[in-house]
Design a protein around this nucleic acid. Structure first.
Length: 277
DNA sequence: CTCAGTGTTCAGTG
DNA sequence: TCACTGAACACTGA
C-alpha cells in the first residue's frame, strides 16, 4: 500500500507483466468514482490491441504508455494494488487479508490480458484510487503539479536547504505535501523525521542547516532502502519506527525511548520526544 | 457499533 | 494570489 516504495514496486510489476506486450482482452468494472470521467467503452477501445510501451512513475503516480496515443495513469489511493498471478503468490499473498488467493482478486477494477497470456489487475477496495487517461502525463495534472521525486531527481543538500527556508509551514505537513516532495506519505514522513531527530511540529524555515542536511540524508536513505527491498516491510531494519508504531510492539523504540502520538495535518503522527527536537 | 486509516482534494482562513 | 489547515471522501477491518 502505497507510498513511493510501494508504487515503485507496483511499477516494476507492471513493467515485467505488460511492457512489450499487446493487450488482448480488457475487463473494466463499472465504477464512476475510480474511473472518473473515463467511460468503460472508451477505455476498452483505447487499450484493445495496443502495445504497452513503458511503465513509469513519479511520486505516487504511475502510468503505462499505451501505443503512441497516450498513457493510462493510475493512482493506487490508500488501498490499491497491481496484481499478476505470480506477484500474488510471491510477495503479497500474506500482506493483506484481502488477498485470499482467488483470481482475479477481489475488488478488481481493471483486468488486462496480454498476447503472451500474462495478466495485470488493478484492485481497489476503498475507492480512493484513480484510473485516468492522459496524452502526456508529465505535462498535465496531476503529475505536472508534483514536487521532486526523491528517488529520481533529488535536489542537492544546498537546494533542499533553500527550499525549506522558504516554507513557514509545519515540517511534517510539508513532507506530506506532494507539490513539495512527491511520494512521501504518513509513515515515511514520520520515519524520516525520527531518523533526522527533528520534532515533527517544527516549522520548516526554523530548521538549522545541520537539521536540513540530516533530513535530506534520511529522506534519501529511507526511500532508497524501502525500494531496495521491494517495499517489503518484513525486510525493513529492526530499528525503524515503522515496526513500533502499530500493534503489539507499539509504544517504545528498540532503544527504549517512549513513542508518542499527536495529530498533525489531520494525520496520526508517531514520534519520540526524547530523540526529536 | 464506532472509528481509524500507508491519500488527495477543496473550501475556508489569514 | 499564496500558503496553510481541516473536513470530506469510501469502505474495510479491528
Amino acid at each position: 500500500m502505497p507510498e513511493l516504495p510501494e508504487v515503485e514496486y507496483a511499477r516494476s510489476v507492471a513493467e515485467r507483466a505488460a511492457v512489450g506486450r499487446r493487450v488482448r482482452d480488457v475487463h473494466v468494472e463499472e465504477d464512476a468514482i475510480v474511473f472518473e470521467n473515463l467511460p468503460p467503452d472508451l477505455l476498452r477501445k483505447r487499450l484493445l490491441g495496443a502495445e504497452v510501451r513503458a511503465a513509469r512513475r513519479k511520486g505516487k503516480q504511475l502510468w503505462l504508455e499505451i501505443g503512441s496515443q497516450g498513457s493510462l495513469l493510475i493512482h493506487l489511493g490508500m488501498t490499491g494494488h497491481l496484481r499478476t498471478p505470480d506477484e500474488r503468490r510471491l510477495k503479497l499473498a500474506a500482506d493483506t487479508p484481502l488477498d485470499d488467493g482467488r483470481w482475479p482478486p477481489r475488488f478488481a477494477k481493471l483486468h488486462l490480458v496480454f498476447d503472451d497470456d500474462g495478466e495485470l489487475v488493478f484492485t481497489n477496495s476503498r475507492r480512493f484510487g484513480r484510473v485516468r487517461w492522459r496524452q502526456d502525463p508529465r505535462a498535465e495534472s496531476p503529475v505536472a503539479d508534483l514536487g521532486f521525486d526523491p528517488l529520481l531527481e533529488a535536489p542537492s543538500v544546498a537546494e533542499f536547504q533553500g527550499m525549506l527556508s522558504d516554507r513557514k509551514g509545519v515540517i511534517k505537513s510539508l513532507l506530506l505535501n506532494q507539490r513539495f516532495v512527491a511520494g512521501v506519505g504518513n509513515w515515511i514522513a514520520d520515519e524520516v523525521l525520527f531518523r533526522a531527530g527533528i520534532d515533527p511540529r517544527r516549522r520548516a524555515c526554523d530548521l538549522t542547516l545541520d537539521e536540513s542536511r540530516a533530513l535530506h540524508e534520511s529522506l534519501g536513505y529511507v526511500i532508497e532502502f524501502a525500494v531496495s527491498v521491494d517495499a517489503d516491510k518484513r525486510r525493513f531494519p529492526d530499528d525503524w519506527l515503522f515496526h513500533r508504531r502499530w500493534g503489539k510492539a507499539a509504544g517504545v523504540t528498540t532503544g527504549g525511548d517512549a513513542i508518542e502520538f499527536v495529530t498533525i495535518g489531520g494525520r496520526t503522527t508517531a514520534w519520540v520526544p526524547s530523540c526529536q527536537r
